[in-house]
Amino acid sequence: MAAGGDHGSPDSYRSPLASRYASPEMCFVFSDRYKFRTWRQLWLWLAEAEQTLGLPITDEQIQEMKSNLENIDFKMAAEEEKRLRHDVMAHVHTFGHCCPKAAGIIHLGATSCYVGDNTDLIILRNALDLLLPKLARVISRLADFAKERASLPTLGFTHFQPAQLTTVGKRCCLWIQDLCMDLQNLKRVRDDLRFRGVKGTTGTQASFLQLFEGDDHKVEQLDKMVTEKAGFKRAFIITGQTYTRKVDIEVLSVLASLGASVHKICTDIRLLANLKEMEEPFEKQQIGSSAMPYKRNPMRSERCCSLARHLMTLVMDPLQTASVQWFERTLDDSANRRICLAEAFLTADTILNTLQNISEGLVVYPKVIERRIRQELPFMATENIIMAMVKAGGSRQDCHEKIRVLSQQAASVVKQEGGDNDLIERIQVDAYFSPIHSQLDHLLDPSSFTGRASQQVQRFLEEEVYPLLKPYESVMKVKAELCL
C-alpha cells in the first residue's frame, strides 16, 4: 500500500493539533497551500530580480507567473513527485505547466533550498508574528487579574506546605514575570531571523556568478533584492546548502521555554482548584465526569500541561538535527523538520489560546482563602504575639514557653481530632496574655502579614508589564474561544 493518505478522510490519521486544537490561522501558515504558494512567490521574486539585473526574462513571463501564483494543481504535483521522487522539481514542473512561456526560467540558477529553506524562514517569521500578540493578550488578562487582587491576602506555599502570606495578585505576578520573559525572547528570536537568500547549491553562489558572467556586484544585488522582497532586513552571508540548523534550535528553545512557563502556571491553577481557592472557567453544560456528576475538573489547565510537556520535548529534535548536518548538509534534517517545526508552533498556539481562555474567566473564592488563612495564621502570628507581650512588660522566655504549650495543644486538636485551630481562643482565655487581649485582632490582621506584596504588584505592572504590552494595544480586544 502506498504511503500517505487522504487526510480529510475519517479513515486516515490526522494530527489532533490540526484537527482538534490549533487555530485556523496557525494551521494555514503550515498548510501545503501556504507552503507551495510561497515557493511560487519566491520563484517570481527571483525572476523579477534577475530581470532587473539584466537576464533575458520578459515582462510577459513575469506576468504569467504572477497570474498563476494561486493556480496550484495539487493532484498534478503529487503525481509528479511520485514520478520524480523530488518535491521541488515536482512543483517546478507543475508551475511550468500553467506558465508555459515562463517554464524555462522558473528556478533559474537556484537549488531546492532556495524555495525550501527560504519558505521555512518566512513561515517561522509569520508563525512567530501570530504567537506574539496571543502571548501579549494572556499577559494582559493576567495583569488585569493581578491588579484587581493585588491586596487580597492568601496563604503562600513553599514545598506545598503553608508559608508566609502573600497576595493573590502577587502570586499571579510570578506567572506574568515568566511570560514577559517569554514574550521578550519570542520577539528577540523573531527579529534575529535572517533570510537564507540566493546562495546556490553549497552556499557559494557559483551558479549565479556564472549567470551574471562573473559580476560579483550583481550577485550581491540579486541576494539583497530577493531578501528585501521577502520582507527581511538581512540575509546570511555564510550558508551551506541550507541555512544553519542552529536557527531551528533557537526558535524551538524559546517555544519550549514558553511551554515550561505555561505548565507551571496551569499546575498552580490545578492545585488551587483542589484547594477550592480558584477555578478555571466551567461552562453551564460542561460535564466533569461521566460517573461523578459533582466533579469540576480543571480540564483546560490539564490540557495545557499535557501539550506543554510535548512542546518542551520537541527542542531535542533540532538539537540532534543540527549535530548531524555533515559538511554542507545531509538530508537527516528533512523529514524531522517537516514534523517538529509545525508541531512546535501548533502546540504553542494551542496552549496560548487555551491559557487566554482560562485567564479571561478565572474565578476566585475569597471566603475559602480566608478560612485557610484562619487555619494557619495563628501559628504564624506567634512571633508577633511574643513581641507584643514583651512590649507590655512580659518575659520573652516565659511567653515563648506559654505559646509553645498552647500551640501544641491547638495542633493536637487540628491533627488528632480534625478540629479547627483554636490557638487564639486559648490565648484569649489565658490570664497571662490579658495585657494584649485587646491587640489580638490587630495582630491577626492578614494584611499585616503580606509585606509589600501589593506595592510590588503595582510597581511591576507599571514599570515592566504595561510598557512591554504597549506595541500590542491594537490587538488586545480579541477574545479566545474554545470549541473543545
Rank of each mutant, 00 (worst) to 15 (best):
Pro16His: 01
Arg20Val: 11
Pro24Ile: 13
Phe28Trp: 06
Val29Ser: 03
Lys35Leu: 06
Trp45Gln: 08
Glu48Ile: 11
Gly54Met: 01
Pro56Phe: 01
Asp59Val: 02
Glu60Pro: 07
Gln63Gly: 11
Gln63Asn: 13
Ile72Arg: 07
Phe74Lys: 15
Arg83Asp: 07
Arg83Val: 08
Met89Ile: 02
Ala90Pro: 10
Thr94Glu: 15
Cys98Glu: 01
Pro100Val: 08
Ile105Met: 15
Thr111Arg: 02
Ser112Met: 12
Tyr114Asn: 07
Asp117Ile: 12
Leu121Gly: 04
Ile122Asp: 04
Leu131Cys: 01
Ser140Pro: 04
Ser140Glu: 05
Arg141Tyr: 12
Arg141Val: 06
Lys147Trp: 15
Ser151Trp: 04
Phe157Val: 01
Val168Trp: 03
Cys173Arg: 05
Asp178Val: 11
Cys180Asn: 05
Asn185Ser: 06
Leu186Glu: 11
Leu193Cys: 14
Leu193Ala: 06
Arg194Ser: 05
Arg194Ala: 02
Arg194Val: 08
Gly197Asp: 04
Lys199Gly: 00
Thr201Arg: 04
Thr201Lys: 07
Gln205Ile: 03
Ala206Gly: 04
Leu209Val: 03
Phe212Glu: 04
Lys218Gly: 03
Met225Pro: 04
Phe232Cys: 04
Gln241Pro: 03
Asp248Ser: 03
Ile249Lys: 15
Ile249Thr: 05
Ser253Arg: 11
Ile265Ala: 11
Arg270Ser: 01
Pro281Met: 12
Phe282Leu: 12
Ile287Lys: 09
Gly288Val: 09
Ala291Gln: 07
Ala291Leu: 07
Met292Lys: 07
Arg296His: 12
Arg296Gly: 12
Asn297Lys: 10
Met299Pro: 07
Arg303Ile: 01
Ser306Tyr: 09
His310Phe: 05
Asp317Tyr: 01
Trp326Met: 07
Glu343Leu: 03
Thr350Leu: 10
Leu352Cys: 07
Asn353Thr: 02
Arg374Leu: 11
Ile386Ala: 01
Val390Asp: 02
Asp398Glu: 14
Asp398Ile: 09
Val405Tyr: 14
Val405Ile: 04
Ser407Ile: 01
Ala411Leu: 14
Lys415His: 12
Lys415Val: 07
Gln416Glu: 10
Asp430Cys: 07
Pro435Asp: 13
Pro435Asn: 04
Ser438Leu: 00
Glu463Val: 14
Tyr466Arg: 09
Tyr466Lys: 08
Val475Tyr: 00
Val478Leu: 09
Leu484Tyr: 08
